[in-house]
């Protein structure tokens, strides 16, 4: 098995995660929250590790189905472990396994939560929690296939095959990269429409973003203890979106 290329691939996953963390960081800056510092720390760790492992391109670029499976499986794990760090470091979710559960539930768009009092979390944490839904809804790996020019060759096919459910990959256009781009455009579009609708119905921006991320990714994290039950007026545009 070509370990070097798996390391390289996981390095890129970390780089992408580092970039994703910029958004909750901005949220923290806007709301002047102390806990934003933990995103900065995680971002530094991810970025550092990612930089180290993508610094050198692997010489051997053989990539078969086996490497594809390993890459995809490991990248979900890596993504979740580093994604859980801000919750754990900030002690807002004091136990690591709980934080991990929350993030895995987020990235896999499962939507179940260990939190009894969601509202106690700081806003940047809430934002990250909902944002994992949105990222997971389409898949980080598909995103990587769409944007990153990874060494090329037939290897994105093996990754796509390991990542997508079912025995064969359905595509809209001949190239995986183009297919992924089209899917992402649609995804962006849907999310944008929902955000606009919710804003028009009078919901505050922060709520709108978090809820839209949660629903577009077919997840289910809310940011209030009773989810969306207490906000009946907002439901009118939300139900068709769901």
């Amino acid at each position: 098995m070509n370990i070097a290329i798996i390391r390289y691939f996981l390095g890129w996953i970390l780089n992408v995660e580092a970039v994703l963390m910029v958004l909750p960081l901005i949220t923290a800056l806007i709301y002047q929250e102390q806990s934003g510092i933990y995103f900065l720390i995680t971002l530094a760790i991810c970025g550092g590790l990612g930089f180290l492992s993508t610094f050198r391109k692997p010489k051997k670029t053989v990539f078969y189905a086996k490497e594809g499976f390993v890459c995809v499986a490991l990248s979900w794990i890596v993504l979740s472990i580093f994604g859980a760090l801000p919750f754990y470091l900030s002690r807002e979710i004091p136990r690591f396994e709980d934080a991990l559960f929350e993030v895995i539930s987020g990235f896999t768009t499962t939507g179940s939560s260990i939190l009894t009092n969601v509202e106690a979390l700081s806003r940047c944490m809430l934002f990250w929690r909902s944002f994992t839904h949105w990222v997971g809804g389409m898949g980080v790996i598909v995103f990587m296939l769409a944007v990153l020019p990874l060494a090329g060759g037939g290897y994105n096919m093996h990754i796509m095959r390991a990542e997508s459910p079912g025995p064969s990959v359905g595509k809209l256009v001949p190239k995986v990269r183009q297919t992924a781009k089209i899917l992402y455009l649609l995804y962006f579009g849907i999310t944008l429409v929902q955000i606009l609708c919710l804003l028009l119905s009078g919901m505050p921006l922060f709520h709108t973003l978090c809820l839209s991320f949660g629903t577009a990714g077919t997840g289910g994290f809310g940011i209030l203890n009773d989810s969306i039950a207490s906000t009946p007026t907002f439901n009118s545009p939300l139900s068709p979106c769901l």
């Binding site: 189905a65 037939g154 994105n156 096919m157 001949p174 995986v176």
Partner: peptide
């Protein structure tokens, strides 16, 4: 290039699409 293959035999096509980025 963007490649689309047409063949009558689905097995041949499957093995080709598995290893190449083609439709």
């Amino acid at each position: 290039h963007d490649i689309t293959l047409i063949d009558r035999n689905p097995n041949v096509l499957r093995s080709l699409t598995d290893s190449n980025d083609v439709m």
